[in-house]
């Protein structure tokens, strides 16, 4: 009984005003110190580096990136890549997650495992498989020719088709799993209730299903967008230099041309994009758009 009060007291002592030190809290120290030194400090230093060149403080890196149509175009490429990947993943993942959430029993476990398993396979391996599929003598061309869509095999590698095909292939599970976890909690009786009140399927979907599954849409969308905007391996192997992204520029800046300020500025811009995305999504989850009316 007093326990509740003790907890309350602990919570209130968490304020800086009067926090009495407990020796047991020292168990947190190794982890916190490690993450401070090995994670927070390097990231902060990177942000600092983006404002410094050989002559001291300067915005040259940002001027270079944000003032040059070439780099603006690259930022645009990354955003376009992320937007299209996210949109396609949502369009395909939503009905798939819905079916997965509505199936019961052993099949749900099996199908869930089948969605989950590809996630644990190395991205390099999957992308390698994709490059084989995209070859002139690969399975895609094999299917297209044999099904009569085209007469002769065409070049797919290094096209935008193969890029988006690959991106969706690699990141689709990241959309389905958050959607699934929200849809699984959804009470199917709500939909019956809506139907029994005379609402048509479209109306039910727009007014009931979509708003209720919005947290999953936001979570999955944020996840897929933030990892695809930063994707490096898949675009690199599937289109290479023909479709430059921010990741490509960052890697080149450090590994090839050694323009550290350019790389650091690009990294900070990407950091800002991801941070903005995460903040926006947590804001959206707190005030779900569907419940405004």
């Amino acid at each position: 009984m007093t326990l509740a009060r003790d907890d309350l007291a602990v919570a209130s002592t968490a304020k800086p005003a009067r926090w009495s030190f407990d020796a047991k809290a020292l168990i947190a120290a190794p982890g916190l110190i490690f993450m401070g030194l090995a994670f927070a400090v390097p990231v902060l230093m990177l942000i600092g580096d983006s404002f410094v060149d050989r002559d001291g403080l300067s915005l040259a890196g940002y001027r270079k990136v944000l003032g040059d149509p070439y780099y603006i175009g690259i930022i645009g490429n990354s955003l376009q890549l992320a937007c299209i990947t996210t949109a396609v993943c949502l369009a395909v993942g939503y009905p798939a997650a819905w079916a997965l959430a509505r199936i019961r029993g052993v099949w749900q476990v099996i199908l869930f495992a089948l969605i989950f398993l590809p996630l644990t396979v190395s991205i390099v391996v999957k992308t390698f498989g994709l490059t084989i599929m995209m070859r002139r003598d690969g399975i895609i061309n094999f299917l297209l020719v044999n099904l009569g869509f085209i007469e002769r095999p065409m070049r797919l590698v290094f096209t935008e088709f193969s890029l988006y095909f690959g991106m969706v292939n690699v990141f689709l599970p990241f959309m389905i799993l958050p959607l699934y976890s929200v849809m699984r909690m959804l009470d199917p009786r709500l939909l019956d209730a809506s139907a029994s009140l005379g609402a048509g399927p479209v109306h039910t979907f727009l007014r009931v299903t979509l708003p209720l599954t919005m947290p999953g849409v936001i979570a999955g969308g944020t996840l897929v967008f933030s990892i695809s905007v930063a994707a490096y391996v898949t675009p690199g192997l599937l289109v290479g230099d023909r479709f430059m992204t921010m990741s490509q520029v960052m890697a080149k800046a450090y590994l090839n041309i050694r323009d550290f300020q350019l790389g650091a500025s690009m990294a900070v811009i990407m950091l800002v994009i991801s941070a903005a995305l995460i903040l926006a999504s947590s804001y959206l989850v707190r005030t779900p758009g569907g419940e405004r009316r």
Binding site: M1, T2, L3, A4, R5, D6
Partner: peptide
């Protein structure tokens, strides 16, 4: 005593 009277604290 009721909740918050200090009995559990005394025990601990």
């Amino acid at each position: 005593g009721p909740s918050g009277c200090g009995k559990t604290t005394l025990l601990r």
